[in-house]
Design a protein around this nucleic acid. Structure first.
Length: 491
RNA sequence: CGGGGUGUAGCGCAGUUGGUAGCGUACCUGGUUUGGGACCAGGUGGUCGCGUGUUCGAGUCACGCCACCCCGACCA
């Protein structure tokens, strides 16, 4: 955990931004709010993609692809959905450019105006449900369990690398079911897939919960979420799974005939996670030396660095390093041997720490004599000399331990920073001074929620699914409450 | 769209009362180095955001414009 976190809280944003750039993950582009994901950042996304895709397939889903453009009229079919997204849409109005006759250069050809404007998808419910209409007539056509990997565009006012960019990469699952129960079951199944991915692969503990009316997805009946806590005490929504009820089926008139020969609207879910997860990974684990990647998502598990005085020495080290590399690759690990002579060992140490490589091996003349290597684990920076023999079992075990340790550390941090409060004074104090999750009673009204937000910037992150019923009084209004909800200042 | 700030070398910045365009870093060359971001010497690189004005002379002063960043509204 970062040492100077408290003193750094005020400029945590700056620190985060610098880290993303310095570690070579991404940078901002020439286009407002857009991001260039650099090879190292993209390699992490590819890992996430690979793991999630497998999990989706194991739960019976297939991939498909729907168009980038959505006719404006589709968009306006579901009232809440329009309301939620209209303010942040990129709109295509023309399809041709031309050279201006008055020498103003390239201009939009006004004669090439689209009959109906196209929206660049901010999410695909509408185009997909318009399509599903043609696919569904009977209960025999259900369920439809489809996922799409895509880019979407949301013209947000303020952007931050990975956390909120104008264009971002994500996956969106869209399923159709015969019954409400089945759809709800699917919603929770996918919420659990996300939770398991976050905890077991990202080593980030999550709170599973349901969103309040005002925080839920535009067009959903209920939005389920996994909420994570970052090292600066702010919450980050890691993924959402929506129970859409029959809202989109009604908007797009998608009905099916049941076994009992009854005509009914189809039940729906949608769920997604985005490149924001990379932001979560960074802010959950990094320290002042840079990133710390969980072994299960690290593009490179082990980096080997030679330390040598001359060519003969390097040749000997090369041989040893290559043999170690081979033995580790045989165990399914990704290994990089960096024997470039353009950088000194110390420079490489710092560089790979910045990039968060879980394990580093250094081999020098002393090690050649002793048949040993210097091993450093990134999570604790603990350094020790280990024998080369048996290293191909030592390192896989160590990687497991690092994965576990990272999760435990993050879990302890979250537990330490999840604070139950019972009074409004206490609430304001905790939110303003240290942040974190604050567990408090709430009267259940959007009005109170809104006022708390206005006065403290804290929002209700979720109503945790594993909540125990508990009689209490709303910290703001004093009205009766049946359970605590989770507040935080969020990204 | 409101409030604040910044534009000078690839990046980070300094530039005093207006008087030859600077520093750190990066980059290139040569040498010595290599167990925690090496050192020495030499070198490349700038339409000072854009425009107009004041002046013998503008990075510096005035006016106008543009871009970007931060805080808020919006949000995965």
């Amino acid at each position: 955990m970062a040492k100077d976190l408290v003193s750094r809280q005020d400029n945590y944003s700056q620190w985060y931004n610098d880290l993303v750039i310095k570690a070579g993950l991404a940078e901002s582009s020439a286009v407002r709010g857009c991001m260039v994901i650099k090879p190292y950042g993209y390699a992490i996304w590819e890992k996430m993609h690979e793991v999630l895709d497998k999990m989706f397939k194991e739960t019976g889903h297939e991939n498909a692809y729907f168009p980038l453009f959505i006719p404006k009229s589709f968009f306006s079919r579901e009232a809440e959905h329009v309301e939620g997204f209209a303010k942040e849409c990129a709109v295509v109005t023309h399809y041709r450019l031309k050279n201006d006759e008055n020498g103003k250069g390239l201009v939009v050809d006004e004669t090439a105006k689209l009959e109906e404007e196209l929206i660049v998808r901010p999410t695909s419910e509408t185009i997909i449900w318009n399509t599903y209409k043609g696919w569904i007539q009977s209960y025999r056509d259900l369920p439809i369990l489809i996922n799409q990997w895509a880019n979407v565009v949301r013209w947000e006012m303020r952007t931050r690398l990975f956390l909120r960019t104008t264009e971002f990469l994500w996956q969106e699952g869209h399923t159709a079911h015969a019954t409400s129960e089945e759809a709800l079951e699917e919603t929770l199944r996918m919420l659990n897939v996300y939770a398991s991915f976050a905890e077991n692969y990202m080593a980030v503990p999550v709170i599973k919960g349901v969103k309040t009316e005002s925080e839920k997805f535009a067009g959903a009946v209920d939005t389920y979420t996994i909420e994570t806590l970052m090292q600066d005490g702010k919450a980050l929504q890691g993924g959402t799974s929506h129970f859409l009820g029959q809202n989109f089926a009604k908007a797009f008139d998608v009905k099916y005939l049941s076994k009992e020969q009854k005509l009914d609207y189809v039940w729906a879910t949608s769920w997604g996670v985005t490149t924001r997860l990379i932001g979560a990974l960074i802010m959950a684990h990094s320290d002042d030396n840079g990133l710390i990647l969980p072994p299960k998502l690290a593009p490179i598990h082990v980096v080997i660095i030679p330390i040598h005085k001359n060519e003969e020495e390097l040749a000997q080290i090369n041989a040893k390093a290559e043999s170690i590399k081979k033995s580790l690759i045989a165990k399914g690990l990704s290994v990089k041997y960096d024997n470039r002579d353009t950088h000194k060992p110390g420079w490489k140490f710092a560089e790979y720490e910045l990039k968060g490589i879980p394990v580093r091996l250094a081999i020098g003349p002393r090690d050649l004599l002793n048949n040993s290597v210097e091993l450093v684990r990134r999570d604790t920076l603990e350094k020790k000399i280990v024998p080369v023999d048996g290293i191909d079992t030592l390192i896989p075990d160590l990687l497991d331990e690092i994965q576990q340790n990272m999760y435990q550390k993050a879990l302890q941090f979250r537990e330490k920073n999840t604070i139950p409060v019972n009074t409004w004074e206490e609430f304001k104090e905790v939110i303003a001074s240290k942040g974190g999750f604050v567990s408090a009673h709430w009267d259940g009204t959007p009005e109170t929620e809104e006022k708390i937000k206005d006065e403290t910037k804290a929002t209700i992150r979720c109503i945790p699914l594993d909540n125990k019923p508990e009689e209490g009084k709303c910290i703001y209004s004093g009205k009766p409450s049946r359970q605590r909800v989770l507040f935080a200042i969020a990204y």
